[in-house]
């Protein structure tokens, strides 16, 4: 008890130090609001960045996890954060724009000064190794033989998997029913256990199982073939329009001081070129760097997609 009190006191002192006033940028640590819980993919990305950024920035980066409501609490907090140059945060798609489309968000894209995208995790259509399906044509044939019997696991309403499933049904004329799961482990277990006909997932979630031969990837939801799995055709090659991914990157609140923004951009440039960072990141993150301009355009385009999806089938 006494020990825990001392610990608390120490914590309070630390927090006090963090909130000391700034004089010349940067005079105190920069907070990264991570809109997911500790240990997830977004959190790992932010912590890796924070660790390597210390080499190139005079102050440390501190992680503050504000998770919940599909990232919305964190995105809201970032949009409303003090624009003093000491708070940046993570954003991830499609949730970031899906909340805007669903009219639940208290922000728009213009509330952010977009920084860098680090990770793009492409969508994949998978079946367990025991599945009779080897191609998309097999699935379509099964649909024709027994319409409405097919099921596909997704990670819930408003997720990239759900959008992918909707696109798949539209492109192929199938009526695959979404079986929403809570989180990717649950979805993966449902697919691998053969409880659903197929799974709409992301490459990073199942890459190791694919290599171990436990599941088959039938098609990629990318525009080009993916370097990690060059043998797998894209939906476009097979004649269907299904493009989906989930991406993770960073943004600052709009109105961030210009000199601070330039410094942070510079840190990103250096970290993303750091061979040690790349080595640490390559095994667990599907790296795909986009600079501020390109990333912003990507988000604007995505918003159109999620807007349309919401109009058609709100969640």
């Amino acid at each position: 008890m006494r020990k825990s009190l001392i610990l608390l006191l120490a914590l309070c002192t630390l927090l006090g130090a963090v909130s000391a006033m700034a004089a010349d940028y940067p005079t105190k640590p920069v907070t990264i609001i991570v809109a997911s819980n500790a240990g997830g993919g977004t959190d790992t990305m932010a912590r890796l960045f924070a660790k390597f950024a210390e080499k190139y920035f005079p102050q440390p980066f501190v992680i503050n996890n504000i998770d919940g409501a599909g990232g919305q609490r964190g995105f809201d907090a970032l949009a409303r954060a003090k624009k003093d140059g000491y708070t940046i945060g993570t954003i991830y798609t499609p949730h970031f724009t899906a909340h805007i489309s669903a009219k639940r968000a208290n922000y728009t894209i213009d509330d952010f000064a977009i920084l860098y995208n680090l990770v793009t995790d492409p969508g994949v259509l998978v079946v367990p190794a025991s599945s009779p399906f080897n191609t998309i044509e097999d699935i379509i044939a099964a649909e024709k033989a027994d319409p409405g019997s097919l099921t596909g696991s997704t990670s819930g309403p408003g997720s990239d998997d759900a959008f992918a499933l909707a696109q798949f049904n539209e492109a192929t004329g199938c009526t695959v029913k979404s079986v929403p799961a809570t989180g990717s482990s649950n979805a993966k277990a449902t697919v691998m256990g053969g409880h659903v006909s197929m799974g709409f997932m992301n490459l990073s979630q199942i890459e190791s199982n694919y290599k171990a031969g436990e599941i088959r990837i039938l098609a990629m939801m990318t525009t080009k073939r993916h370097p990690s799995v060059p043998d797998i055709p894209t939906f476009a090659e097979l004649g269907y329009k299904v493009v989906s991914d989930s991406s993770r990157g960073f943004a600052a609140p709009a109105g961030f001081p210009e000199d601070a923004y330039a410094m942070i951009v510079d840190v990103f440039e250096k970290v993303l070129a750091d061979p040690e960072f790349l080595a640490a990141a390559k095994d667990q993150l599907e790296m795909n760097f986009m600079g501020p301009e390109e990333y912003r355009q990507y988000l604007v385009d995505l918003l159109e997609v999620t807007d349309k999806a919401y109009e058609k089938d709100p969640w």
């Binding site: 639940r104 208290n106 309403p157």
Partner: peptide
């Protein structure tokens, strides 16, 4: 969890 409909949240993001 199935339809994405918000139940009894009264617009409170913290209850989503």
């Amino acid at each position: 969890p199935l339809s994405g409909y918000m139940r009894f949240t009264f617009g409170q993001v913290d209850l989503y």
